[in-house]
């Protein structure tokens, strides 16, 4: 099974720009299915990013973040080949993580 996480991290000058896309339904708990029943909330609560083992960014999300969440941020330092780890946890306790290299 392919990872739920896609990351593009590019180092430019002294800054690394990170874009991430995560496959997740982000069900808010307010939407009904075709049978008229509420779909229970199911959303990522936290997404964390580490650069060479050091945390650089923490996202705390509620269910108002869109389906298949997208995130862009940047940090100082980081060069091509450095490791970047992205991990998430959702409200049902499910998790996934991906380690990638900065381009």
């Amino acid at each position: 099974m392919a990872s739920s996480i896609r990351v593009r991290a590019t180092s430019r000058g002294d800054t690394t720009e990170v874009q991430a896309l995560v496959q997740h339904p982000m069900d808010s708990g307010f939407v009904k299915n075709a049978r008229g029943e509420l779909i229970p909330p199911h959303f990522i609560q936290r997404l964390a990013i580490e650069h060479d083992g050091k945390p650089v960014f923490v996202a705390d999300w509620g269910p108002a973040v869109s389906k298949d969440p997208y995130l862009k941020f940047a940090f100082k330092g980081g060069k091509a080949g450095d490791e970047l780890k992205v991990s998430w946890t959702d409200n049902k306790g499910a998790t996934d993580q991906l380690t990638t290299k900065i381009q």
Partner: peptide, 16 residues
């Protein structure tokens, strides 16, 4: 979002 030391004060996302 927690902006940790060294991280740029910028974030982009998509919301409902």
């Amino acid at each position: 979002y927690r902006i940790l030391p060294g991280t740029t004060a910028m974030v982009a996302n998509r919301l409902k």
